[in-house]
Design a protein around this nucleic acid. Structure first.
Lengths: 106, 106
DNA sequence: CACTTACGTTAGTTCCTGCTTACATATAGC
DNA sequence: GCTATATGTAAGCAGGAACTAACGTAAGTG
């Protein structure tokens, strides 16, 4: 998850992800959407690929990229677990409060 | 969302979040769980607070912290939207494939 | 009011990251 | 094989982030 988190923390990489979410695009086509140089985009693509957030397919001299949403699953699971456990904690707190009320002066 | 993402990308901050998820802890109690110095933890707490991931309550000379899971909502929404849109894209691709099959030789 | 406790804040250092420029590699077409 | 196109890789730099040490602050305690 660490790699995926570090990957999506960079705004440019999130934008790239959005670009290749629906369509499979070449590295050049992706770079055309940004002000930064093409090598910079290439480096971002490498990071995304190594984080499992993007898959690469070679076609002649081109490299086509497409989003791999499964790569975001670990982050989702982390967030959801955190969420659920916190709700559980709130429930326990409420029950403790309830017990305190019931048992007071006893 | 940017702030929340940057906040949870640091492993120490994720650990802090987990610590104060169930229990309300003082800054010192939190720092006791780490090898880094107390000021470092204090800085992490500031980042988490400004990202809306933690809430602070003062009690005498102490400051007690507790997780604020709602702060993670924007990230969850980003991920889920990404997920849903990607599924939508897959569906459109499948339908396009279907049309190509139906309409071939026409 | 002095002293202690529990913190946050500042200044400075080190390391990481994103970026650019320059260079290397690979495929396609002649 | 030579040239052009599409792209990755390497070196180097600048800005940011996490950390430590030293200092400042506010609330209890005698």
């Amino acid at each position: 998850m660490e790699a995926a988190l570090k990957a999506i923390v960079a705004p440019h990489r999130r934008q790239i992800l959005s670009l290749v979410r629906d369509d499979e695009l070449s590295a050049g086509a992706i770079a055309a959407h940004f002000d930064v140089t093409r090598p910079a985009v290439s480096q971002h693509l490498t990071v995304l690929k190594e984080a499992g957030l993007v898959e690469e397919r070679r076609n002649g001299t081109r490299r086509l990229y497409r989003a791999r949403p499964e790569g975001l699953l670990p982050i989702r699971e982390f967030l959801e677990e955190f969420w659920d456990e916190r709700l559980g904690a709130l429930k326990r707190e409420a029950e403790a409060e309830e017990r305190k009320k019931d048992g007071r002066d006893s």
